[in-house]
């Protein structure tokens, strides 16, 4: 049975590293894995997604509308943007963190404070304070790996040797903090 994990966020938040660690771990655990990302013009501060699928045999690397088992959003509004991709009965992991779109920066509109309520109303939603946790760990950038930790736990993938995956794919000076971030993410859910 193929499982689908949709990681979404804003360009620069580290969805690409999170999906790289995730897919490498899944491959080493013996799953067939496919992953799709769109790079290029849409990326600078734009909405980004990494679509990860794994199982015995994966056909499409692209997740369908209504097809994701779990929607992991690195930013609140992005969870809502991509919500139609969640399977009925699927789970949402959302980072309690907002990045204002440029159109709202000039003061012409407001970032809605009802987004988390809407998410909770529609699906099983787990709110993760990854930014706060990352700052506690000493580097806001590890927010992505905290969210990865939460995802791993919710998808029952803790058996994979994530420490080894981090050691092999992260620059040596950031290995320790990322290991702690992954564990912290698991502990948050």
């Amino acid at each position: 049975m193929t499982k689908s994990i949709l990681l979404v966020g804003v360009g620069g938040q580290g969805t690409i590293l999170a999906s790289k660690l995730l897919t490498t771990g899944l491959m080493e655990a013996g799953y067939d894995v496919k992953m799709s990302e769109i790079h290029g013009m849409s990326q600078r501060g734009g909405s980004v997604s990494s679509q990860v699928r794994y199982g015995d045999k994966v056909e499409s690397p692209v997740i369908e509308i209504g097809g994701a088992d779990i929607l992991v959003s690195f930013e609140k509004m992005e969870a809502l943007r991509w919500l139609e991709y969640l399977k009925i009965g699927g789970k949402i992991v959302v980072n309690n963190f907002q990045i204002k779109p440029v159109s709202l920066l000039s003061g012409k509109g407001e970032y809605s404070d009802k987004i988390l309520d809407e998410l909770k109303d529609k699906a099983d939603t787990i709110i993760v304070d990854a930014a706060e946790k990352a700052r506690e760990l000493g580097n806001e950038r590890v927010m992505n790996v905290i969210l990865l930790g939460s995802t791993v736990k919710l998808m029952n993938l803790q058996e994979i040797d994530w420490d080894k995956i981090i050691e092999e794919n992260v620059k040596s000076q950031f290995v320790e903090i990322n290991k702690r971030a992954l564990q912290a993410g698991m502990d948050l859910v």
């Binding site: 804003v10 013009m41 849409s42 990326q43 600078r44 501060g45 734009g46 909405s47 499409s60 692209v62 369908e64 509308i65 209504g66 097809g67 509004m77 809502l80 943007r81 919500l83 139609e84 991709y85 969640l86 399977k87 009925i88 779109p101 440029v102 159109s103 709202l104 509109g109 970032y111 809605s112 009802k114 987004i115 809407e118 529609k122 699906a123």
Partner: peptide
Amino acid sequence: PDIIRKSVEGSTKPSLEYDKSMVVPRPP
């Protein structure tokens, strides 16, 4: 796949209905 499914079966897989008005575009 969802476009192919919709073209052949008439609709995509069932998905959630929700308030999209809170979502603002993020153009590059």
